[in-house]
């Protein structure tokens, strides 16, 4: 418990929460590790958790019919993973697979969600942080979608 609290205190994601709130959140957390190749979760499974990745890299993938699984993003140490537990129907929208041994703090999101319903102050504080995370990922997805390195025709420019 104390170890988990210390881990959470070192994460910028939780910056600004009171010690009491952090203790509460830590109470829903447990350390969990995954071997390389193992899935943290699969698409369509119930989303009843979120993760703080402490070390190791995780690949977020979507299955494309007739093609190899497509990695659309990789996450690593210090990154937060998962927000589908916030929104009905609480199902994962993609696969998360460990690319190497991955150590995480796993949060019992279903229980925490119930807690947040009854403690709106905590609920709002966490929602705010997850909203920021979602926005950051949304911006990144948009940028990725723009295909900014696509080369057109032309002769000028610093790169050629």
């Amino acid at each position: 418990m104390r170890e988990l609290l210390e881990i959470l205190q070192g994460q910028s994601f939780f910056d600004g929460l009171t010690e009491a709130q952090l203790k509460l959140v830590a109470a829903f957390a447990a350390l969990r590790s995954f071997e390389a190749g193992r899935y943290l979760f699969r698409e369509h499974e119930p989303a009843d958790a979120f993760y703080l990745i402490r070390s190791g890299r995780v690949s977020l993938e979507s299955l494309l019919p007739g093609r190899q699984p497509g990695t659309f993003m990789t996450l690593g140490g210090g990154d937060m993973l998962g927000w589908s537990w916030l929104i009905p129907p609480y199902r994962w929208h993609y696969d998360a697979r460990a690319l190497e041994p991955v150590h995480t703090a796993h949060f019992d999101a279903a229980a925490l969600r119930e807690r947040m319903d009854h403690d709106p102050v905590l609920g709002y504080a966490l929602h705010k942080r997850f909203t920021m995370l979602i926005v950051e990922r949304l911006q990144a997805a948009r940028l990725q979608h723009l295909d900014i390195y696509a080369s057109g025709e032309g002769d000028v420019g610093l790169g050629g």
Partner: peptide, 24 residues
């Protein structure tokens, strides 16, 4: 190092370069 679009044999990161900055 990150790439926008990974390939089957790519073992590195996938995602946009700004996320590397976001990680601090």
């Amino acid at each position: 190092v990150t790439v926008d679009r990974g390939t089957a044999d790519w073992k590195g990161d996938v995602g946009v370069v700004t996320q590397l900055i976001d990680r601090g």
